[in-house]
Design a protein around this nucleic acid. Structure first.
Lengths: 261, 261
DNA sequence: CCGTGTGGTCCGTAATACGGATCGATGTGC
DNA sequence: GCACATCGATCCGTATTACGGACCACACGG
């Protein structure tokens, strides 16, 4: 269904560029104007886009559908109380993320009460190798998947990002050994985080939890303490999850968009 | 583009029923199994759905696209500081909602610090006439749109919901006169709220702000005080919004998709 | 061993999406 | 005020594509 894929691409493009007009969109996407226009009008008829006549915006419908993802399988519901408790304890920002292909996506957040804090909007993304959340899940990916990832293009985000596959592999071993991942300015300068994967039944990760804050409040000597706290919190969430939904591997289709299209 | 519309309907159905299998989905949608299956596989290839082989889930991609809606035109960014200030002042739950056809959708929330509080998840919906947020926007809809709505099916949600068009019309006059809307148990028993529309340049509402809490903490004698506070907060947000995006009417397309599913 | 459920596949036909060409409106520079 | 670029929008013949009933493989229960 080619038309569906192009329409979804248009939808994503609008979400990135909104508010956006037809011409700018066609230029950005490199598709015939007619094709884009047809997709736009169809998406609007379906209620996923709104327009004032020239500019296009993603409508609330997308928000409603998207917001159901966060609590898929009860993840957010199970995680929120634990996140609140952890936030009260360490007084830093707590992030709940889920994997999406080669990236992790932020689906819930409890902000640090401090004035100085790292802020990331819900829906924010990061590469698996450049975030504590990503690394914590990368360490427990099914056989081969992690190897595939390490073999692919690993790009640096900051000057501190680890891009060498061998060093990353060694780090993943460490993560598995101690149960949490650390990120020191690898994603954003001045920001440090520790994270642990949420693995129901000790199986594949369905998400991860992190504590993050400015480097000054997250010195290396505190990593072990916070790491242990976040690991226990992640385990508590995993134990609360209704196991049924989370049995089978789920890393198949997400990255699949590449070949099929 | 029929296939696009059916695929989007499948996507919405999955978001409501997830985790869900093929057969259950076809029964729920009343479409041929083949059609649903083709949509499912296409959506998965495009990265909008994930499957473990039998059960289907909405993937993180939908979340990412949906999360861009909340800050459309900078609304959330402009609103959050104001919402925080208001929450600190009144110590009740603050909701930011946007219109979507015949409903309003919750896109941001600051929870009351009280133990007893009304909780609604992001993405929650309510009819225009049965929520303070909805009524505050209904009062400022473009000429004819509000009349159309009042002429349509107005359904009661609770025993306190106003369904008589004449009484609603009168209430909208009051809302315009004093600048805020009040909802006493019309959407949920025991919950009271006051709301004001966010109208950049005094034009059409792009969203609304509300204070809501249990009836015991929101007696009628406090409505005027809270109403005035929420009105001022909404005005402050409207003043901060970059006007450019919010010029033209935007209530055209959204209602179109309703009958389909 | 058959009935009923599940997910998944085939394939001829009819419907439909494609996209280059074209148009009217708007706006900008000279 | 003319020429020109650019905008959104529409047309329409062709080739592609989606449709969906029929069918298949498998699993479970009596």
């Amino acid at each position: 269904m080619r038309s569906v894929k192009t329409a979804l691409q248009v939808l994503e493009a609008v979400s990135r560029l909104q508010p956006v007009g037809l011409s700018e969109l066609t230029r950005a996407m490199g598709l015939p104007k007619t094709t884009v226009y047809r997709s736009l009008t169809t998406l609007a008829e379906a209620g996923w886009l709104e327009t004032d006549g020239t500019q296009w915006l993603v409508s609330a419908r997308a928000f409603v559908v998207g917001s159901t993802v966060g609590d898929r399988g009860g993840l957010r519901t199970c995680a929120l109380p634990v996140m609140n408790a952890l936030a009260a304890e360490v007084r830093e920002t707590i992030h709940l993320m889920i994997p999406d292909g080669r990236e992790v996506v932020l689906i819930e957040r409890i902000d640090s009460p401090h004035a100085v804090r790292a802020v990331a909007p819900l829906g924010a993304r990061a590469p698996l190798h450049a975030s504590s959340n990503g690394k914590s899940m990368l360490a427990y990916l099914p056989e081969g998947k992690a190897a595939d990832y390490l073999r692919s293009d690993i790009e640096a985000v900051t000057a501190h990002t680890t891009t060498d596959p061998d060093r990353l592999r060694a780090e993943l071993d460490t993560i598995r050994a101690r149960g949490y991942a650390v990120n020191v300015e690898e994603l954003q300068d001045g920001v440090v985080a520790v994270a642990a994967a949420i693995r129901p039944g000790g199986g594949l990760p369905v998400g991860s939890l992190s504590i993050s804050g400015p480097k000054v409040r997250m010195p290396s000597k505190i990593h072990a303490e916070y790491g242990e706290k976040v690991r226990q919190a992640a385990e508590k969430i995993a134990a609360k999850l209704p196991a049924a939904v989370w049995q089978a591997p789920r890393y198949t289709s997400a990255s699949g968009a590449a070949p099929g299209v």
